[in-house]
Write a protein that binds this DNA or RNA. Structure first.
Ligand SMILES: [Zn+2]
Ligand SMILES: [Zn+2]
Ligand SMILES: [Zn+2]
Ligand SMILES: [Zn+2]
Lengths: 303, 303, 303, 303
DNA sequence: GGACATGTTGACGTACATGTTA
DNA sequence: TAACATGTACGTCAACATGTCC
């Protein structure tokens, strides 16, 4: 039972290698309660299991966090998987296989592909009933170490436009929204400036196994002046009313125009060993021609 | 049976859910007089309010708050239910259940279905007698947040036709008219451009419990270039001669060719959980083929 | 080789056809002085003009007429070629044919291809010496009739960024800048809101035939929220200090990342008869997914 | 050789019966020069030929006009087929069979189905070369006798909208436009008020057999306040510069959202003998509910 | 300069919404 | 009141436009 693995799996960008090690559409399976025994591998061919790995630092796999309920760095939210005391799990419905489905989830890559503005249902499950008043939080973080300190926000174009902003509860700068029945609350952390959405955790409808939450993303991953093709992770956490984390799941998200196409390309690339880790420059030139100066300066002005 | 429920039911579009919580044909029952106790929150368990929170997070975004006598934004009229000092109530006669009735009211959905051009009687009741010279105002508003800032008017086709326009008191652009004895005055707010009708409040006829007002709608909810299938709310308010609001009731209205059919369809849909919230596009993707725009207006709103 | 050809070539979009009728890199050759003979009609055989017709028919619609020194509509700047009293001409240096050149000019298509932020030299020539204090003005206009009324500006992303904006004379919203020796003045027409740049006309250096002006474009033609792939024309005019137009030249401009590639593609396309007239939607059907609008603006333009 | 037959075929509404008597996609075949011998029947089962018919008035079939070059009534344009001295013919490309193709032509029904705003190519052919400067005219007429005197125009909604109107050469009230290379002229007959489009006739491109003209329709056949579901015919004529008719072809046109679907329905209906001749009321009530008063009064105000 | 990344266009299909006819 | 007529929503796909990487 090694902790912290997920940090590198869908996490903080270890020497980029795609590890197809999932077990269907679920992050965190049923029998795991607190300490998180390994989830049973349901996938036809589990590649290497965490126990194969030689070092906790480098091993990869869908796993627990060393930092249980609280993040290590104030500024960098934990992306560690954590089932927590109530056995928090997350999975996706069988997604459309169409090339231009509005969303699709690759369990092979642990990556969600979703069109901008469209809702994508995620399914939550708890093994034990949590106290009343628990909350679900969704927060995006940049995946790559180089960008992880930067807050993920909408691009100026989208933030300043009227569409989807006028008359909406969600502040225009938030990338992630939660739609659906329960009223969503949009938060901004005072210190870090990180933005997130909260909804009340509601137990599954009678007859249903999961609670469904409808996510939507308000920028493309490629949005210039915003995510700018840099991959992000989405952290979904179960929290108490006071903000204590009772569970955490995490997956990569790519918001794009053609989820099916791009997923297919990623998976092929991954199989051929050629990671396609977001087209954001590897080298360190000045920046793309149309955004000449180094992006950092422009996007994160000194506060 | 609390009068305030309507705030959440037919109110300003909290994340779309229909709450079938009405109590017959009446909006605002007798025991509520002034204050209108705050409506119970829709969510099963109330979210924590900002003041509860222990973290540095500040919640962002426009919070919904019930407004009493005055609207929060000058441009967006309040749709909050308000009994007011005289116990203002509104209800509908037992409506014809026939599929071909010219109007019908679903108390389950708090929604009026009415044919274009036909009159529909609404019944008003006051617990206490108001001062002489009070007025009744009817004003339509779009129900959905995305459209709520737009003034509800007739479509060009109907506005420019001769029928029902020639020789009429009502200006051709007004959607809602009041027919019957008392002379109606058609108003247009200088700032917002909102249109409404006013009639003198007259106490019930002797032997009658209610004052009846005859409404008529001059466009279908589906009229292209006008409401265009977007649901509206009708705000009925009791006002002093000077415009102070002494009471307010509000219900959804759908103007259509087959009130009976459509009500039935709505109610079935609601029961099956499949809201039928007006067929107006959700995704904002295209525009209807027959009503296109040059992208210009989209991309560069006039300064 | 008549100077007037450009009127139909790069002019205000007569029903789209590209007429490859240019004559090298120059717009307006020497023999044309004042009057600019009327451009020959594009159609092989001229249609009959209304005065010919024997029937009672009147032709309807805006007829295109060449305007001399003054624009017909205040809001739509004239794009008519006009040599004027001093024989105003414009041409381009022999442009690099390299695929990676920062700019290139296709005399076949009368179209400049230029990278964003890079300077592109244009050469001006006058047959007679103009009075002292004459000005050169550069103003962009959308080429297509559907967009011609819209002011050409930078996209929000570029306008709001810091790069190329901080500490610059040019206002961030201006698309076109003039670099180089003479101080440029950035103007905004009060009524129309049109933006343009002015520099003093300086006679050619001794030994040189032309006056060179360095243009630069601060957005790509493809910039979302700005030009958005809509082709533009650039109007270069010679004016008196008081604003009277003494000459006018006009060419299409495309600001893009790969001028060489795109020019080549255009020219091939043109030869094969398949105009490649800017990828902006023809049908006006939808809007791009990532730049949606609430229908409101479509249906009810602000009064 | 009976003349005038076509008047009833695609023409003036004889007791409505659909006669599937066409011969592929062409109206008027090659060997017909002036007097119009009967076109060879290519259709598998020609029903009755004109010679079957007992009276010229009632007989049906694709045929010549008694009024050769000039219309009988000033107000009702002739819809008679007329090959004329140059053997004027019209046909359609093989149209898409898709259910929602943007246009499709049923030679069985001699009827074009076309989406609003989309261009539809029609192919013209002349056996002999006409004099230089000949024109092609397209003019719509109502098909049914009851409406034939009414001028076919756009509906108020579309005429007054901005889309497709702003900055266009075509006047907003014209239903039919011609797109493409040659400049179109939009005419309005002084007496009748009839609207039509003219383009120069251009001989086929080298290697091509036909001249292609791109038509587009700016209203749906169903547009309320406009065609209002009343079927129309489109008259295509070849004319001299002075307006003398040198040839005429005519077909029914239906502008609708789903050409494929509707064609299929029509053809099935026709086979089952149940004409589907436009859903405009047969009976003579007041008008549809939403357009209460008789349309005539509203649409054609006394001039 | 080539390969690629990635949004847009526009054609199409199905299900449905909704007025009209009878 | 049922059947129909007919537009709309929206998912899907292939071709393409166009910036970026290297
Ligand atoms: Zn964005
Ligand atoms: Zn209307
Ligand atoms: Zn830009
Ligand atoms: Zn129309």
């Amino acid at each position: 039972m090694s902790a912290g693995l997920l940090v590198s799996c869908a996490g903080m960008e270890t020497p980029s290698r795609i590890v197809p090690n999932s077990q269907g559409n679920c992050l965190g399976s049923t029998n795991a309660l607190h300490g998180n025994q390994l989830p049973p591998m349901i996938a036809p061919t589990p590649l290497h299991t965490p126990s194969d790995s030689t070092s906790a630092e480098e091993s990869e796999g869908p796993m627990m966090s060393p930092t249980m309920g609280f993040s290590m760095t104030p500024c960098i939210p934990s992306t560690a998987e954590y089932a927590g005391p109530y056995g928090f799990q997350l999975c996706f419905q069988q997604s459309s296989t169409a090339k231009s489905a509005t969303w699709t989830y690759s369990s092979e890559l642990r990556k969600l592909y979703c069109q901008i503005f469209k809702t994508c249902p995620i399914q939550l499950k708890l093994v034990l009933s949590p106290p009343v008043g628990c909350l679900i939080r969704a927060m995006p973080v940049y995946k790559k170490a180089e960008h992880v300190t930067e807050v993920v926000k909408r691009c100026p174009n989208h933030e300043l436009g009227r569409d989807f902003n006028e008359g909406q509860v969600a502040p225009p700068s938030h990338l992630v929204r939660i739609e659906g029945s329960s009223v969503a609350r949009y938060m901004r952390d005072g210190e870090s400036g990180r933005q997130s959405v909260l909804v009340l955790y509601e137990p599954p409808q009678v007859g249903s196994e999961h609670t469904t939450v409808l996510l939507s993303f308000m920028c493309n991953s490629s949005c210039v002046g915003g995510m700018n093709r840099r991959p992000i992770l989405l952290i979904i956490s179960l929290e108490t009313h006071e903000g204590q984390v009772l569970g955490r799941r995490c997956f990569e998200a790519r918001v794009c125009a053609c989820p099916g196409r791009d997923r297919r390309a990623d998976e092929e690339g991954a199989r051929r060993g050629r990671g396609r880790e977001g087209a954001f420059r590897k080298t360190c030139r000045a920046g793309p021609l149309s955004m000449q100066v180094s992006r950092r300066r422009r996007l994160a002005p000194p506060p």
